[in-house]
Design a protein around this nucleic acid. Structure first.
Lengths: 214, 214
DNA sequence: TCTTCTATCAATAAAATCTTCATCTTTTTT
DNA sequence: AAAAAAGATGAAGATTTTATTGATAGAAGA
């Protein structure tokens, strides 16, 4: 799992990054909150952790900007203020959870995991002439429904969740097959299955690295 | 009927659970409100009863979080405060009803029943030549009434609630049989029963995934 | 008691899963 | 530019998992 951490305190940032990465959560840590503007692919992050008190802009503004951009990733707010007002403002801007400092890193880890399990993607996704309804778990090509197997669905779901980003074969294996003893070939087999259904070239191969949807 | 009770007061919780269960409402009682995060299947509950004053988080926050997650179950708020503000906040977060402490458990029971009915889908549904009256629990084929067993009805109801969507065997088991120790076969048996009644092909099989009612 | 309901089972059918192979294409390395 | 590596493609097939069907026994209710 990969998260985005927006935290300008170098000490807290460093320690959070360390702790989370020990617990196999990749952390993209941004110290300067102005950098957020230059992140184009939010789909790669399962959760965004945002400190409310930042140097250049107020956390609330960042959150509002993200939501205005149509970014739906779950956002967890970190705040030193116990002020109730702030929490409400954040929730009204679409935060999904918050944590008041000081907090136990384990608590943060738990909450990140809980958030990542929620859906942060549109429930209906269009790829070419295909319409994929995540809620209903069905795929339609015009009026006709296309059935796919469980495994194929899981792979597709994972690609969608990470669409726009290259996902490593390793991570696909881990997500779809868990610790079942299978080799890389199986990913190829199922990628092939999906390519039969999806529009041409919508899954791109990055040799030695992985695949990218869209 | 099964409800979720979020109440950290052990005395009130215990007595509510007892009273409601005497009146054939299964109660999943959570004392530690943090547990809410780990509930993934809210479909199983017809109503959520939430105490506003909890140890670890404010009831409003929990409600807000639930709604942000896209959980649409009817929520009834319990509150000791007679403060109108709070009620308004709750309604703005999407509460469906409230009750101020102290209250008569019978009142709660009545309100739970009212909520569970309000939430219902259209009360009469047509599938092919069948007419299903959800409120009266009656299935008609023309003038003739078709009787089905209680279990079959529960399954049908769940499929109707989720019609158009693939529902996993796992979730069906959870909804219809709860934690009774039964195996997947029983779902198949009852799907078979329903297929005898419903128009041909109205329940589709998704191998390894589940079933879908059109 | 008689009937309906509930749950399981065994035989069979049908997909899904995963591996393997041969051949071809693309990318990377030397 | 040639060689090596990685992946694509198509297909076959063995294995496993899952679903269908009909039969059946026990539980529960009328």
């Amino acid at each position: 799992m990969k998260i985005l951490l927006i935290e300008d305190d170098p000490i807290l940032g460093e320690s959070l990054k360390d702790y989370l990465e020990e617990n196999s959560i990749f952390v993209h840590w941004i110290q300067d909150d102005r950098e957020v503007e230059y992140i184009y692919n939010f789909d790669q992050y399962e959760v965004v952790v945002l400190d409310l008190i930042l140097k250049y802009s107020r956390g609330e503004d960042i959150l509002r900007q993200l939501r205005n951009k149509g970014i739906k990733n779950p956002v967890l707010i970190l705040t030193a203020k116990r002020d109730i007002k702030d929490k409400e403002v954040c929730f009204s801007y679409g935060a999904d959870d918050y944590l008041t400092k000081p907090f136990n890193p384990k608590e943060l880890l738990l909450r990140i995991n809980a958030l990542s399990k929620r859906k942060h993607i549109d429930s209906v996704i269009k790829i070419g002439d295909l319409e994929i309804n995540i809620d209903k778990k069905i795929i339609k090509k015009g009026a006709e429904e296309i059935k796919i197997s469980k495994t194929a669905w899981e792979l597709l779901y994972y690609l969608i969740k990470n669409r726009g980003a290259v996902v490593e074969t390793e991570r696909i294996l881990n997500y779809v097959w868990g610790d079942r003893p299978v080799g890389d070939e199986i990913v190829r087999t199922y990628i092939k299955e999906l390519r039969k259904i999806l529009p041409k070239d919508s899954i791109k191969t990055y040799k030695g690295r992985g695949y990218k949807l869209e």
